[in-house]
Computed example of a mutant assay.
Amino acid sequence: MDYRGKPYYSLDAWCKNTYGEKLYKIALDAGLTCPNRDGTLDSRGCIFCSAGGSGEFAAGNRPGSGKPAAPLSIREQLEAGKKLLEGKRTGSRYIAYFQAYTNTYGPPEYLASIFRQALAEPDIAGISIATRPDCLGAGVMQLLLSLKQDFPGKFIWVELGLQTIHEETARFIRRGYSLSCFTRAMESLHKAGIPVIVHVILGLPGETEEMVLDTIRFLNRCGIFGIKLQLLHILEHTDLAALYREGKVSVLSLDAYLSLLLKCIAALSPDIVIHRLTGDGPKRILIAPSWSGNKRNVLNTLHQRMKLSSIRQGQCYESGTFDSLQIDCAVYVGQGHLPPDHSPDQ
């Protein structure tokens, strides 16, 4: 495979290898909610999740409000997103990214309507659906299969927010489902031929370097199409923000994050597409880490370190050795234990 000059398999390289051009993502708000917010599982969401349900950059948001607006139609959001991208286009097609909240958590008829609206647009190459593994019932799977059949020239991806394979951490962040639920969802999606992108958060409270690498090794065996490696952000109006202000959790420095990220990239199977290597939380609600606001600097520094250290994606995966990569990396809060005086279920 052609990495297009980078030491890792980026989404940009995959798009150019597959379509001969760059594809631009347009984030969408479908007006849905989440079982972790509507009372089905909880009403507070995951402890790191903002009020916008990770959809602050969606085209359906009211500018400056910090909250989802009554969503525009999918078609209107796509047009708004295209206008925002007019100045930087080097390609002619887009990815419709259903980002905010849980995008398979709704009536099948409504889900069919919004996905078909996006796929029907001539310049949409495909759709990416952010959701939870516990929201992929039989009706949703049948819908995905029908979309594949009706739009054979376009891709349909599903993004799952796993974050970690460790159950204690998952309870602490209030993820709301078990690892076995994730593996069952993966089996169903593989059977349907739906490529899966998995979200992983680096720097979760109580997780050591080895725990993070365990998650990467697990995903290598799962046959995932892509991965998003995201640093832990502290955002306003989240339960994590309260813990941060109480001194019960901390965030990684830029050096510690890059050191851990390099080990994850080296441990990752070389054929997994990396869709994200950092994060850019909305500056109006970002508490920490402040360095994450300069995404270009983070990526430039990462590329420089990979070049100087001769690190590339998959080198430890291929050799089967993970201790040969000598990079200093900070140990997280609690040396592998969750913050004191805080129950994972609170």
Rank of each mutant, 00 (worst) to 15 (best):
Met1Asp: 08
Ser10Val: 01
Ala13His: 05
Trp14Met: 02
Trp14Lys: 03
Cys15Gly: 02
Lys16Gln: 14
Asn17Arg: 05
Lys22Gly: 00
Ala30Ile: 01
Gly31Ala: 05
Arg37Gly: 06
Arg37Phe: 01
Phe48Ser: 10
Phe48Cys: 03
Glu56Ala: 14
Gly60Gln: 01
Arg62Met: 06
Gly64Val: 02
Glu76Val: 01
Gly87Asn: 10
Ser92Phe: 04
Tyr94Phe: 15
Tyr97Phe: 06
Phe98Lys: 03
Phe98Ala: 01
Gln99Ala: 04
Ala100Glu: 04
Thr102Val: 07
Thr102Asn: 10
Glu109Phe: 02
Leu111Lys: 00
Phe115Thr: 02
Phe115Asn: 03
Asp123His: 02
Asp123Trp: 01
Ala125Lys: 06
Ile127Cys: 08
Ala130Arg: 02
Thr131Val: 08
Arg132Lys: 04
Pro133Met: 04
Ala138Leu: 01
Phe151Gly: 14
Gly153Ser: 13
Phe155Met: 00
Glu159Phe: 04
Glu168Tyr: 01
Arg171Ser: 11
Phe172Ala: 14
Glu187Phe: 13
Lys191Met: 09
Val196Ile: 10
His199Pro: 05
Met211Ser: 14
Asp214Pro: 09
Arg217Ile: 13
Leu219Gln: 11
Cys222Tyr: 04
Ile224Tyr: 13
Leu232Trp: 03
Glu236Thr: 02
Thr238Cys: 03
Ala241Thr: 02
Tyr244Ser: 09
Val249Cys: 09
Leu254Val: 10
Leu258Ile: 06
Leu258Cys: 10
Leu258Val: 02
Lys263Met: 14
Ala266Asp: 08
Asp271Phe: 14
Ile274Ser: 14
Gly281Met: 13
Pro282Tyr: 05
Lys283Ser: 13
Arg284Leu: 04
Ile285Asp: 07
Ile285Ser: 11
Leu286Ala: 13
Ile287Lys: 05
Ala288Glu: 12
Ala288Ser: 14
Pro289His: 07
Pro289Ser: 12
Pro289Ile: 00
Ser290Thr: 09
Ser292Phe: 06
Asn297Pro: 00
Asn297Trp: 14
Ser309Trp: 08
Arg312His: 15
Thr321Glu: 11
Thr321Asp: 12
Gln326Ile: 03
Asp328Ser: 12
Asp328Leu: 02
Cys329Phe: 11
Tyr332Ala: 12
Tyr332Met: 08
Val333Arg: 10
Pro340Tyr: 08
Pro340His: 09
His342Pro: 03
Pro344His: 04
